[in-house]
């Protein structure tokens, strides 16, 4: 019943705008409750973020190490899919990354639940061109999301550049997602900054690999949300993230190349023992 009333209200609004003479621009963005926040689907994460990830803003996703770039890209594309399910996606990418990680593959995008037909790839030479292309795309209101892959820490990507991007994003309503690799996170005007690492998936039946899984750390959020880790996986059927539930009896996602896990501090028990 409420849904029907909402639809009615939206239609009435559209009619009112039409009568005023303006054509409402088609929004490529996901519907939201007006706060500009899009839930990611993982309940714990959404609660911590106060509802979800903000549209019309700049977000940075850092790969923990170059080997985790595919995971970071996957996480970013998942965000893009959440933020603008149908809108055009402009993917700006430095050309040499194709040699390093392979060229983007449309069927792979489809396998993640994105529409390859809605993607415009921009291949650029260096970070400067990448930033220019990203800014151009961020100023075009018809675009859903802009994904920019930027390698290393180019000088040109300073606080001014990131502020310019986030202003453009706020003005046009485009969400700008920047994937960074080979760089230490440093201050920028991004609304939120994430660090992503690949995670061994939970086995599907028959011991086959399951859904793509990520270990995601919120490094910084401008609203002052404290840093935290989450384990998530991407559910392509429903186009949403899911929180990982660590089940007993499964393989622990212990990194193979580390000699040992960092020593765990004995946690203080928040309850007072009786007796």
């Amino acid at each position: 019943m409420t849904a029907r009333r909402d639809t009615l209200a939206a239609l009435k609004g559209t009619l009112a705008r039409l009568e005023r003479g303006g054509m409402p621009p088609a929004s490529p963005h996901a519907p939201s409750d007006g706060s500009g926040l899009v839930p990611l689907g993982a309940a714990g994460l959404d609660a911590a973020l106060g509802g979800g990830i903000a549209r019309a803003a700049l977000h940075e996703v850092h790969a923990e190490a170059p080997v985790h770039v595919p995971a970071a890209t996957g996480f970013t594309l998942g965000l893009a899919r959440r933020v603008a399910p149908a809108g055009p996606l402009v993917w700006v990418r430095q050309r040499f990354l194709d040699q390093e990680f392979g060229r983007p593959y449309g069927r792979g995008l489809a396998a993640l639940g994105l529409d390859p037909g809605a993607v415009v790839m921009v291949r650029v030479r260096d970070a400067e061109d990448a930033l220019r292309a990203t800014l151009d795309a961020a100023r075009c209101g018809a675009v859903g999301t802009v994904v920019a892959d930027i390698w290393g820490a180019p000088k040109i990507l300073d606080l001014t550049a990131s502020r310019r991007l986030s202003l453009a994003a706020a003005e046009s309503g485009v969400t700008v997602l920047m994937t960074r690799a080979g760089a230490e996170p440093e201050p920028s005007a991004a609304l939120s900054r994430w660090r992503v690492r690949g995670l061994a998936s939970e086995a599907a039946e028959g011991g086959m690999p399951g859904r793509p899984a990520f270990s995601v750390t919120l490094l910084r959020h401008r609203a002052g949300i404290p840093p935290r880790d989450w384990s998530m996986e991407w559910d392509r059927e429903h186009g949403r993230f899911r929180e990982r539930t660590a089940l007993p009896g499964r393989l622990a996602p212990l990194p193979a190349e580390r000699t040992a896990a960092p020593p765990v501090e004995p946690q203080s028990i928040p309850f007072r023992r009786a007796g």
Binding site: P70, T73, G74, L77, F101, G102, R103, P104, Y105, G106, R107, G108, L109, A110, A111, L112, D115, P116, G117, A118, S201, A204, M208, P209, G210, R211, P212, R236, E237
Partner: peptide, 20 residues
């Protein structure tokens, strides 16, 4: 919107890679 097929069995998690 000129992309038609999603390839065979796109529903499997490791059907087709993101980067080739």
């Amino acid at each position: 919107g000129s992309y038609r097929s999603a390839g065979p069995a796109a529903a499997r998690p490791l059907a087709r890679p993101l980067q080739l």
